[in-house]
């Protein structure tokens, strides 16, 4: 069934109150993904509905402890980081990245697995403070690049035409300088991966137009970095050939 725009509009109020059938909900959801005006109207209706809630109520005792007890465990063996953005938190589990299989093999031969922590400190799409921090990030990345003891990695495409640079300091601070990566369509994002031993782990979702992205690497287990282009929000397992990739110098 397909509805005309004005028929969808008539459903927006009842949709916002969950007062439609499942089929109608699907129709509206499909429509508002593409229609910013209708999406905004639904959001406005939901704000109104939220105002009707009983703001003075207190949370029931005991529920928080049940929630806290059900939170996911900390990252497993590799203690891999939480990689997050407002658009999509990457999985904690390390995953195979088929496209980087060759790099994995090299890395596995060279790198002993040490305790590694990789944590992206700032989500690329953190809409609150990215703008304020951008200048500071650039300076921090430049400072790291001038640090002689820092490990620098050139990430390149197979034809060498596309490149990015990563710098990893001894204190775990790391930056990906991705200003030269071509801008992706808005429904896509770059995603940064690390090869650790024989595993490939998502470090973070960088957005469609990455500038300088900070992350953290503690330990020496990361042998290679790769950047793929993925659908917005990122993926658990990438089947894509890396846009750029590079091996870290052996410490």
């Amino acid at each position: 069934m397909e509805l005309k725009h004005h028929e969808i509009e008539e459903l927006l109020g009842v949709y916002a109150l969950d007062a439609v059938s499942a089929e109608e909900a699907d129709l509206v959801e499909t429509h508002i993904r593409e229609c910013p005006r209708c999406r905004a109207e639904v959001a406005a209706h939901r704000e109104v509905a939220a105002s009707l809630a009983h703001v003075g109520s207190t949370a029931p005792p005991g529920v928080w402890s049940r929630i806290a007890g059900n939170l996911e465990e900390a990252p497993p063996q590799l203690d891999m980081a939480r990689v997050v953005s407002m658009r999509g938190r990457s999985p904690r589990r390390s995953v195979p990245l088929r496209a980087a299989a060759a790099m994995v093999a090299i890395a596995a031969a060279v790198i002993a697995l040490l305790g590694v922590q990789v944590s992206q400190l700032n989500g690329k799409t953190d809409q609150l403070d990215v703008a304020l921090r951008r200048q500071g990030l650039d300076q921090a990345a430049q400072s790291a690049l001038f640090d002689e003891s820092a490990r620098k990695v050139d990430l390149r495409s197979e034809d060498g035409a596309t490149f990015a640079k990563a710098v990893l300091r001894d204190n775990g601070e790391a930056y990906l300088v991705g200003n030269n990566l071509p801008k992706l369509p808005d429904d896509q994002t770059y995603q940064l991966w690390a090869v650790v031993g024989n595993r490939t782990v998502s470090i973070g979702v960088l957005g469609p137009e990455p500038g300088v992205s900070p992350f953290k690497v503690a330990g020496a287990g990361v042998s290679a970095l790769a950047v793929t282009a993925e659908q917005s929000g990122g993926v658990v397992v990438s089947a894509k050939t890396p846009v750029v990739r590079g091996l870290l110098p052996v410490v």
Binding site: A50, H54, G56, S57, A59, P60, W64, I67, A68, L71
Partner: peptide
């Protein structure tokens, strides 16, 4: 942070 979000909004969530 989740605990703080809970503190702010769990009452309204529960009431609704």
């Amino acid at each position: 942070a989740l605990a703080e979000a809970y503190r702010r909004h769990a009452g309204a969530v529960f009431a609704l």
